Amino acid sequence: MQVHTRHTPAFGVARIVLSQGEAVQADAETLLANSFGVTETRPGRKGPSIFTAPAGGGWLDLAPGHAGDIYPLEFSGRSGWSVALDKVLARPATVKRDQPWPALQALFGGDTGFLEHFSGTGQLVLACKGPVDALTLEAGEVITVRPAYLVAYPDAIQVRLRAVDPAAQQSVRTGEGLALDFAGPGTVLVQARK
């Protein structure tokens, strides 16, 4: 699978190029156009569709329902990434959603939280609101990010979830009233709009 982006960072579109028989999972509502012969199957009543390339391969163009950047996140198979909910535009079969993920269970307790974990190899295509910034942290450097702006972070980085104001309302499902502290080394991906 190859990913080519255009119209970024304002109105990103992802062209997913697939080899013969290769498939990608995406929401059918995001499909802008595709080469002839790409088939769509929907495993359940709800949820994403599976788009499969015919003999000779094919492509599909995906456009999210909001303005912003398209960011192909590369997975090497060595470690995974925690990704904010509703950021995944397309996912190949070689990148899997890990549910449950012990580190997120520890972060959120018994609740599902506003993050999901992915691992594997290939490119996970993310749709973000606004341009994506990669904040690279040196060893021992600590930053704080509000959940509404968080896109993703790798397993190797240290993270702590805390209340901004312990007396105010908080929600681990939406991130309301919470902040994430990250300690380097590592990279945190954020979006410039919420």
Results as ranks from 00 to 15, higher is better:
Pro43Arg: 13
Gly110Asp: 06
Arg162Ala: 15
Arg97Pro: 00
Ala23Glu: 12
Thr187Cys: 02
Gly186Glu: 02
Gly175Gln: 05
Ala33Tyr: 13
Gly21Met: 10
Leu137Lys: 07
Ser49Gln: 14
Asp155Leu: 12
Thr41Ser: 15
Ala93His: 15
Val3Met: 04
Thr144Pro: 00
Pro131Cys: 06
Cys128Glu: 00
Arg193Ala: 08
Ala192Pro: 03
Ala148Thr: 04
Val95Asn: 04
Val83Lys: 08
Pro54Asn: 09
Lys96Arg: 14
Ile143Met: 04
Pro166Cys: 12
Arg6Lys: 13
Gly177Gln: 07
Arg160Gly: 05
Ala179His: 02
Gly12Trp: 01
Phe11Thr: 03
Glu29Ser: 15
Arg162Lys: 14
Gly65Glu: 07
Tyr71Pro: 01
Ile50Asp: 03
Arg97Phe: 12
Thr136Ile: 08
Ala26Ile: 11
Gly21Pro: 03
Ala106Thr: 13
Val142Gln: 12
Thr94Trp: 05
Gly68Cys: 02
Gln169His: 15
Thr30Asn: 08
Ala10Ser: 09
Val95Gln: 02
Gly12Tyr: 00
Gln105Tyr: 04
Ser171Gln: 09
Leu135Asn: 01
Val151Tyr: 00
Gln123His: 12
Val38Tyr: 10
Gly130Gln: 07
Arg160Phe: 07
Leu85Trp: 05
Arg146Ile: 07
Tyr153Arg: 05
Ala179Glu: 08
Arg15Lys: 10
Val159Tyr: 06
Thr94Glu: 08
Thr187Glu: 05
Ile157Ser: 02
Leu107Glu: 05
Gln169Arg: 15
Ala156Trp: 11
Trp59Asn: 11
Val159Phe: 06
Asp133Ala: 11
Gln191Phe: 00
Val125Tyr: 02
